[in-house]
Design a protein around this nucleic acid. Structure first.
Length: 259
DNA sequence: ATGGTTGTTTAACAA
């Protein structure tokens, strides 16, 4: 089973880029972030016509996540538990009904800039809630993964120019420590487990020629429970997508799991 | 230090 994550940066503006990639890459399951769309204005038909079941968790103007799946979905859950007052659409999960069912969680972790400040406080609080959900996933002892835009640069080798990010919410020591506290519960970072080389990025800013200069960062991650990691075949990044017309500033990352 | 770019939406905000 091929499971991908893609921060699409506006699904309506990116519809052609998305459908072209779906037809080429043919993932079985996709989690999208930053759909920037309400559920009722999400362009469903072009995606359903490609054979995908579609579940959205939208919001007007920004944020918003979705799950696309060629396989049936059940037990769809919207919103990260732990704060009923949180209005931001950043979490969706579902059980994918394959021969061996896999729980797929899609997340859009808060950016947190500027730090320090209330946005950074929200990011760190959200990561505490994410840790709680992650612990529950591990306790279930089932194949599961959490995929998405984590807005976390885990280590210096995950940025072309780490010094430029020194005071950024994506790279502050407290951010990276919070990410490690989740990974070290027992998750496998799929890209790190299958790729030896550094300089593998998933995001290049639109500004200042970042793509042309390969001034990227690795912030889109797929974390696997042990039962999913046992099935991990490969993890890849579709870097070439970033050089196309009207691209998102992120590219897809995907894993292949044994059926 | 600052600016640079894009999407959603029309004046900024978020990234």
């Amino acid at each position: 089973m091929k499971i991908a994550s893609y921060n699409i940066n506006g699904v309506k503006a990116r519809l052609h880029a998305l459908t072209a990639w779906l037809e080429e890459a043919r993932p079985d399951v996709v989690v999208l972030q930053e759909i920037k769309s309400l559920d009722e204005t999400f362009p469903r038909a072009p995606i359903e016509d490609l054979g995908y079941n579609l579940e959205t968790h939208g919001q007007k103007g920004f944020n918003g996540v979705a799950i696309l799946s060629r396989l049936p979905l059940e037990d769809v859950r919207r919103g990260l538990p732990g704060d009923d007052g949180d209005e931001q659409a950043r979490w969706i999960e579902a059980l994918v009904l394959a021969d061996t069912p896999v729980r797929v969680c899609g997340l859009y972790l808060p950016n947190g800039n500027p730090a320090p400040g209330p946005k950074y406080d929200y990011k760190l609080a959200w990561m505490v809630r994410l840790k709680a959900r992650a612990q529950a996933l591990l306790a279930a002892e089932e194949p599961a993964l959490m995929a998405g835009d984590y807005n976390v640069i885990p280590q210096a080798e995950d940025a072309a120019n780490p010094a430029a990010w020194a005071t950024d919410a994506l790279y502050l020591p407290e951010t990276r420590a919070a990410f490690r506290r989740i990974v070290h519960l027992g998750f496998t970072d799929a890209l790190r487990a299958t790729t030896r080389q550094d300089g593998v990025y998933t995001f290049w800013d639109y500004q200042a020629g970042a793509w042309r200069r390969n001034d990227g960062i690795r912030i889109d991650h797929i974390l696997l429970t042990p039962q999913a990691a046992d099935r991990l075949v490969t993890c890849q990044i579709d870097k070439e997508i970033r050089g196309r017309e009207k691209p998102s500033d992120h590219v897809p990352i995907w894993v292949e799991l044994e059926d």
